[in-house]
């Protein structure tokens, strides 16, 4: 079974991020790390290949400056290889442009199954996985919490507000994976050492047959026109309990229609 996982390399969330004031886009000049929301897809992919008794897990990513730090983390977890699209022309690419680029890169891999996080932890558009499926013309299933594969078919438990739906669909397909559904393994020392030797196929947009005018700021159909600070949270109401505290809580919950 051949599984591809879309992984994003993002600025370290532990370090306060900065926006480029001229473009209102996130500054990505420092080292990038594996988006934690993608580590669940990597873990699921590894488990699916193990359950299938063989196959491969290929990472597909788009990042500036040929950044591979985040890919190395996922390779150390056990992924077999990676395709990295890195090209100066990609700066400012919007969600749909990203989907076109990743779709073209995934086309070179020809996987049975593509996994992706529901949304990235820096951009949060939550649209790229489904746009990739649209670009590639394959089935798309969102919010998966469990995936099983057999005889060319996928059985998926799809998370909903009330529980989950059971969905089946033929492969190839793209499935977005809900965060927290599996426990991503820790990269081991041996995995870290092995990752150094695993192949990372670095390509530019010309290799994928994509014209520079279709991507980057020039090809983007989205523009962040302004960024404003979120309103500071107001202080909550402090209620001194003088024997009627329970009633105040009940009234408050009733007002919220919780009870």
């Amino acid at each position: 079974m051949k599984v591809a996982v879309c992984v994003k390399q993002i600025p370290d969330p532990a370090v306060p991020g900065e926006l480029d004031p001229s473009t209102n886009t996130l500054n990505r000049d420092d080292k990038l790390i594996l988006d934690e929301s993608d580590s669940f897809g990597v873990e699921l992919a590894l488990q699916l290949v193990e359950a299938a008794g063989g196959g491969s897990v290929t990472l597909v990513s788009m990042a500036p400056r040929s950044e591979v730090s985040g890919l190395r983390t996922a390779l150390a977890m056990g992924a077999d290889d990676a395709v990295l699209v890195s090209d100066d022309a990609l700066a400012g690419t919007d969600a749909l442009g990203t989907a076109k680029v990743l779709g073209a890169a995934l086309g070179r891999v020809e996987p049975d199954l593509i996994l992706a996080g529901v949304e990235s932890s820096d951009g949060y558009t939550g649209t790229v996985p489904e746009q990739i499926a649209g670009v590639m013309g394959i089935a798309s299933v969102t919010f998966a919490k469990k995936i099983e594969a057999s005889d060319g078919m996928l059985s998926i438990q799809r998370q909903t507000d009330d529980g989950y739906d059971e969905v089946t669909c033929p492969m190839p397909a793209l499935v977005s994976v809900t965060g927290g559904v599996v426990e991503p393994r820790y990269p081991s020392f041996k995995g870290i050492m092995a990752a150094k030797k695993k192949p990372v196929d670095q390509v530019g947009i010309a290799d994928l047959g994509i014209d520079a005018s279709a991507v980057g700021f020039a090809g983007s159909r989205q523009e962040t026109v302004a960024v404003v600070d979120a309103e500071a949270r107001e202080a909550g109401e402090i209620v001194i309990d003088e024997g009627e505290g329970f009633q105040r809580i009940a009234d408050f919950l009733a007002e919220l229609k919780v009870i």
Partner: peptide, 15 residues
């Protein structure tokens, strides 16, 4: 080295 940093991250997450 890079491998020291990568191993540090893995152990740090475990901890």
């Amino acid at each position: 080295t890079d491998e020291h940093h990568e191993f540090r991250e893995s152990v740090r997450r475990f901890v």
